[in-house]
């Protein structure tokens, strides 16, 4: 089912989550799963449904690094900049990715096509350097891996 408005979302939340503050994170995960981020109207519905003041929903949402308040680009490229990855060439990967994106970064409507992010560690340092493309991890990554991914989207 496509959740497009407050009422369907509310009905959906009512089905999935009991009205209990402990359900906040699960509900926000649900929202992010549906939309790729937390739209403000959606957080408002979560606030009603769980009986938590909207400011506190927002306060919590902005405190978790994996929750997104703003809509990300169609793709998300993350480059690990942890120590093992840096030691094994993460800087080069990052520079090459941002080089691409600098020239081809936005859609006509101004939204990013690819959101480039850094992470502190991808938790597989034994396979450094690591990048992540739309939630898929790539270990022992090389500039070639990036060359493979990015032209695909920026050429469209």
């Amino acid at each position: 089912m496509v959740i497009s408005d407050r009422n369907t979302l509310r009905a959906e939340l009512r089905k999935e989550f009991p009205r209990d503050r402990g359900q906040l994170l699960p509900a926000l995960h649900f929202l992010q799963h549906e939309f790729g981020y937390l739209p403000d109207w959606g957080m408002e519905v979560v606030s009603w449904h769980l009986g938590i003041p909207a400011s506190e929903v927002y306060g919590a949402a902005t405190s978790y690094t994996e929750l997104r308040i703003r809509r990300p680009g169609e793709h998300v490229l993350r480059v690990c900049r942890g120590i093992s990855c840096t030691l094994n060439g993460a800087d080069e990967l990052y520079d090459s990715a941002s080089g691409y994106l600098f020239s081809n970064s936005t859609e006509a409507d101004g939204t990013e096509c690819v959101t480039l992010e850094e992470v502190g560690c991808a938790y597989m340092c034994g396979l450094a350097p690591v990048i992540e493309w739309d939630h898929q991890l790539i270990g022992r990554a090389t500039v070639a891996s990036i060359d493979q991914l990015l032209p695909e989207v920026s050429d469209r």
């Binding site: 209990d20 906040l24 994170l25 699960p26 995960h29 769980l50 306060g59 919590a60 978790y64």
Partner: peptide
């Protein structure tokens, strides 16, 4: 249960806040 990101989430009392629907503190 699943966390939602942030090193300090692993600090035990922060983790409890997370489970109860509070800020990651």
């Amino acid at each position: 249960c699943r966390g939602a990101g942030g090193y300090v989430c692993g600090e035990e009392t922060t983790l409890l806040n997370t489970l109860e629907g509070y800020r990651r503190e």
